[in-house]
Amino acid sequence: MSGELLETVIRAQRDGYPVLVAAADESSETVETAEELGATVVPVAEDEQDADDRLDALARAARDRGYPGAILHDAEKPIDLQGTHTRLRESNEYAIRSREEVDYDIIVGIPAYNEEIGIGSTIHAAHEYADKVIVVDDGSTDNTVPIATDAGAEVIEHEENKGKGGAVQTLFERVQDVSFDAFVLIDGDGQHLPQEITQVADPVREGDADMVIGSRYLEQDEEDETPAYRRFGQQVLDTLTLGSSSQELTDTQSGFRAFSPRAVEELELTTDGIGVESEMIDSAAQNDLVMEEVPIHVRYEGIDGQTYHPLHHGLTVVSFVLQLVRDRHPLLFFGVPGVLLMVAGALYGVDGILIYRATGQFYPAKALVSGFVTIVGTLGMFTGLVLNRVGNMVSD
């Protein structure tokens, strides 16, 4: 637990929160390090060795020092400081635990950026199918926050825009402190139909899947409102994403998804951008999580507040997927182009040789281009081989 404790101290100090650490052994290396990092050590008696006793001792110490409130954390898991602080402000208690002692069935998470038009109705509708709705406002400049708050959602605010991936990461950090059966992500612009929340969550609730993707294309729908240009772009992104993850899915870019507690714990999300859907699939495949799709419907007509232009969205996701391929499959990323360049360089050089033999005319440019392309191809192939070997060694 020492690593988790020190990480919590560092994060809290960085965000401006004073830290109290309850310790029976004040001379332990971990406690001394925490004190050096700026934490205040609160000694506990021998009869306060129980976790609940230690937390109670921390609450008393915080009150004695005049702090306006306290968050009690046992340091076994990472803490969502901002989300827990929001709960503390909204509660009538002096101290709350970092993990909610409530078992939820379905929790809905909504990443939002300038969604004042659709966020209120989306939250109201989601409340009919979920026990709790959490909105992460990603630095909106409109009335998204007050509307979401008035609609009954728990709102976590980013001071500046981080991107959809950053908002999703904040949501994942928040629900790690909560007990639930299924965590569902939907968009805040009204595209997704809240009445389909249980349909998407059911495979997770029943233990059949760790991640469920609501697919717009799993079933043919004559009333499908997806524009043709958007569907073509989606097919390109599906091909790239599935090629990098070796999965069989029909809609890799859908933001309507459900997750099990295991998925929330094990998915490794690093991107702040709109490539987060592709990264989820790749990370789920790497962690052997069970993925499933269910059909959903979406609305495009009359929906306002599209954050990204489709072309910008597509190019950003393509760039991110190529980075995934580079990192996960270096032999494919470097080796295949390398072999192609070697073959092209060799053929171009052979062509120059044949021309010289037939006419006696020597073309220096052909020789230079052939040599350069062949060398670059050789370097690419060997780079792929070396990185692939290093990756295998790290995995082993």
Rank of each mutant, 00 (worst) to 15 (best):
D103K: 12
P261Y: 07
D103Q: 12
E268L: 05
Q169V: 14
L185N: 12
Q286T: 15
G163V: 01
H309S: 11
V336E: 09
A23Q: 00
L249T: 02
V325I: 14
E90K: 11
V321H: 13
A62W: 02
L347F: 09
N388V: 02
F259V: 02
A45C: 10
F372Q: 11
T144H: 05
A167L: 10
A151P: 04
P330T: 04
S370W: 05
G69Y: 05
D64H: 12
G352V: 11
V31S: 05
H297D: 10
G166F: 01
G338Q: 07
V135D: 01
I96K: 01
T239H: 14
V19A: 00
H158C: 08
A151C: 03
R328H: 11
A51R: 13
Y217K: 13
L385Y: 12
V298N: 15
E7R: 13
M342H: 00
E301D: 15
I186S: 08
P18D: 02
F259I: 02
S283A: 04
V204N: 08
Q235A: 09
L331R: 13
I96S: 03
G233F: 12
V42M: 07
N143L: 13
P203R: 13
L267V: 15
G69E: 01
G305L: 06
E266K: 12
E206P: 00
T30C: 13
E160D: 13
P337H: 14
K164L: 08
D272Y: 03
S28P: 01
T33L: 14
L237I: 08
G377I: 02
F259G: 07
I303C: 03
D56R: 15
Q13E: 06
I96P: 03
S246H: 14
L171M: 02
V184H: 01
R216Y: 01
E76P: 00
Q286W: 08
Y67T: 12
V386T: 08
H85Q: 07
D282I: 07
S254Y: 04
I213F: 06
V236H: 06
Y113V: 05
L55I: 13
P18G: 02
Q195G: 02
D25N: 11
A22R: 00
T383I: 11
G152M: 07
E116M: 07
V108D: 11
D131A: 03
V376H: 01
D80R: 12
G16P: 06
Q253N: 10
E277G: 10
Q13V: 11
I355Y: 09
A284Q: 09
A285S: 14
Y113K: 12
R174P: 01
D25C: 04
E35L: 06
D210K: 14
V44K: 00
L289F: 00
E29W: 12
I96D: 06
G214I: 06
V276P: 15
T226S: 08
E160K: 14
P43K: 04
V155D: 03
V31Y: 05
A12D: 05
L324N: 11
F372I: 15
R299C: 04
P203A: 10
F180Y: 15
Y94V: 04
K132L: 14
R174G: 03
Q169F: 08
D210T: 03
I197K: 04
S215A: 13
E206C: 08
F362V: 10
A126D: 02
L171K: 00
V108I: 04
D396H: 11
H127A: 06
V155H: 05
L387D: 02
M280V: 12
Q220H: 11
